[in-house]
Write a protein that binds this DNA or RNA. Structure first.
Length: 270
DNA sequence: ATGCCTGCTAATAGCAGA
């Protein structure tokens, strides 16, 4: 069984590329982030005509998450319990379309688009940290209820956990950029302490191995990327991982997303 | 070559991404 996660940065703008990749990649489950559409404009048929069931959660042109599966798609949940909302400057806080869960082939899959944070001193940063802490609290409870649960927390985590996960850590420090700060890394480590493992890491050793390259400033040709997309596997799921790769080809050419697919291969499970 | 950012709308400018 193959599980993939991909921040597509607009599904409508990239429908042809996503369909082509879906056919070539032969994945059983594909979690998507940044679909950037409401349900009304979601391309349901793209998935259905290729044999995938699909569930989507989109509230506006921002965010949007989906799960496509050809091994079942059950118990769909939109947002996790108590998912924090964001409101700025007195505007009423709203819950954003950043998490959708479904059970696919015995694996509880969560497609996650972690808030960006924007800047270390921005209101979005405490929102990001609280969002992650709340998710981890629930993940911890899920594992406490069933230590053998196969859970995959996948998506765009908007955190580079290690110095080698960005092209120039000194530049990030000097500029005071997000994604590498201690509070963000601590929020990521908390999931590892809960029992989750970065399932792709062992098969995608760095340095210089990334999942995202900014559109600006020739970041891709200059190999200036970031590793911020992850499949975090519960212990029972991690035990099934037999391979992983980042599909770097998908960053090339016309109409590419700025992120590439992360694919994790699992041995047959119970 | 992998190529100087891209996609969205309350669009033709401004916001968001990381």
């Amino acid at each position: 069984m193959k599980i993939a996660t991909w921040n597509v940065n607009s599904l409508r703008a990239r429908a042809d590329r996503v369909e082509g990749w879906l056919l070539r990649s032969d994945v059983d489950v594909l979690a998507l982030q940044e679909t950037k559409c409401r349900d009304e404009s979601f391309p349901w048929e793209l998935f259905e005509r290729n044999g995938y069931e699909v569930a989507h959660f989109g509230l506006s042109q921002w965010n949007g998450v989906a799960i496509a599966s050809r091994v079942g798609l059950d118990d769909v949940e939109r947002t996790f319990p108590d998912q924090p909302s964001f409101g700025k400057g007195g505007v009423a806080a709203e819950q954003e379309a950043r998490a959708i869960g479904a059970t696919c082939g015995g694996v509880r899959v969560w497609s996650l688009y972690v808030p960006n944070g924007r800047a270390l001193d921005d209101e979005h940063m405490p929102y990001k940290l609280e969002w992650l802490a709340t998710l981890n609290k629930h993940a911890s409870e899920w594992l406490a209820q069933d230590p053998a649960a196969q859970i995959a927390l996948v998506g765009d985590w908007n955190i580079a956990p290690r110095d080698e996960d960005v092209w120039d850590i000194e530049l990030f420090r000097t500029e005071g950029w997000t994604h590498v700060s201690e509070p963000e890394r601590e929020a990521f480590r908390a999931f590892e302490e809960t029992g989750f493992t970065d399932a792709a890491r062992a098969y995608t050793a760095g340095p210089g191995v990334y999942t995202y390259w900014d559109y600006k400033q020739l970041r891709f040709p200059k190999k200036e990327g970031m590793r911020i997309d992850f499949v975090l596997a519960s212990p029972a799921l991690e035990a099934r991982v037999v391979g992983a790769h980042f599909d770097r080809e998908e960053r090339k050419g016309k109409g590419a997303s700025d992120h590439v697919p992360v694919v994790v291969e699992l041995a047959d499970g119970q």
